[in-house]
Design a protein around this nucleic acid. Structure first.
Lengths: 192, 192
DNA sequence: TTACGTTCTTGACATTTGTCAAGATTTGCC
DNA sequence: GGCAAATCTTGACAAATGTCAAGAACGTAA
């Protein structure tokens, strides 16, 4: 189980076996059922959880409505990075959309490893860069595009994911209304 | 001059005097005139430049139009992070909006410091985290808000900056047309 | 199976924003 | 100062998207 996470870390930056052991030492494998709220708005994100199996979403509430900011599936690390890094209350919540198996690390334990193994900071930096990259890519996708373009990009970028997610959540993710998404889909079906 | 950069680095993570000297050793202070293109789309970003004085913008071209992704002023580090770290061609260009004084470090020299001073990786990681944080915050601001809300947030968040930047660039940054921005401003003036 | 709640679709209409075009204002430069 | 270029403003209209409301389709549990 935990091997999936180690494989991922090693692919980012190879770890010595001592470092690897230390990482395993602070990692806890947990199963959570669908609909679990892993993090509430206003809480500090103390854990970073590698997704071994399952799917989650990060969202925030604006007025009455929930706006989905991102989806996190296998190979992703679940946390509110803003909160996890800054130690400030999160502005977003995290909800599991499917039953999940997660490999969780506590912030403080992670800091100890950063201190004990300076080279782990290279890995930390690269993981951060990777999520930075994904975040920027999402942000770019949402900028200056029509509803139709955004949905097409979403389907192309996440060909398996979009079938696992309710449309109203895809809609808030894309920043369009549920109805508009429905119409876009109808229009695309006609064409093909 | 270079002290401003050292102060910033030390505030992120304290540096030993040896490390500090090594950083100074690879840093070059340069003056560039307004309108200089520091990085073109398709080039690899070889430098990371701390802004001592001045202002720049990162943008990409979508079809005919330029879309401004971010502004970088004093205390910011100018580069395309994605390109700088991945050594891949950048998807964005960087243009100076004012005459600038920059403290520039070359990617390869920086790598040597990472190797010689493992603890510098801590600083590198934290700087990356900080820019990730700023990126996410920008991304949030642009989501699900009206033109008026976005402009108000921009003014509040960058009270000094918005007076230094042409409106059409603020408009592309906010993802709205120049005309809409102009109307929003007119409307806000009336109210106050 | 039925009954219920949720999700998805569709129509009518309102609102926001974009586009095009013209004119006003500001800026840079000789 | 005065001209040219760039920037900003304003109006009229078009396009995209949102909102409200109703009904269809789907999944789930008794």
């Amino acid at each position: 189980m935990i091997q999936k996470m180690l494989d991922y870390f090693n692919s980012v930056h190879p770890m010595s076996s001592e470092l690897s052991d230390a990482v395993v030492g602070i990692t806890e494998i947990k199963d959570y059922p669908k609909k679990t709220i892993l993090l509430k708005e206003g809480q500090v994100a103390n854990h970073a959880c590698f997704v071994i199996k399952g799917l989650a979403r990060g969202y925030y509430t604006a007025g009455e409505k929930e706006v989905t900011r991102l989806f996190m599936d296998e190979g992703f690390i679940i946390t509110s990075w803003l909160s996890f890094y800054s130690r400030q209350p999160a502005h977003e919540a995290i909800e599991l959309l499917e039953d999940c198996t997660l490999a969780c690390m506590h912030h403080d334990d992670l800091q100890k490893i950063y201190a004990a193994f300076p080279e782990f900071n290279i890995l930390g930096r690269k993981v951060t860069e990777r999520f930075f990259y994904l975040s920027e890519r999402r942000s770019l996708m949402l900028r200056r595009h029509t509803a139709e373009e955004k949905y097409q990009m979403f389907v192309e970028q996440y060909p398996t994911l979009f079938q696992r997610i309710a449309q109203k959540q895809i809609a808030t993710y894309l920043g369009i209304s549920e109805e508009t998404l429905s119409r876009v889909r109808a229009k695309m079906l006609k064409k093909s």
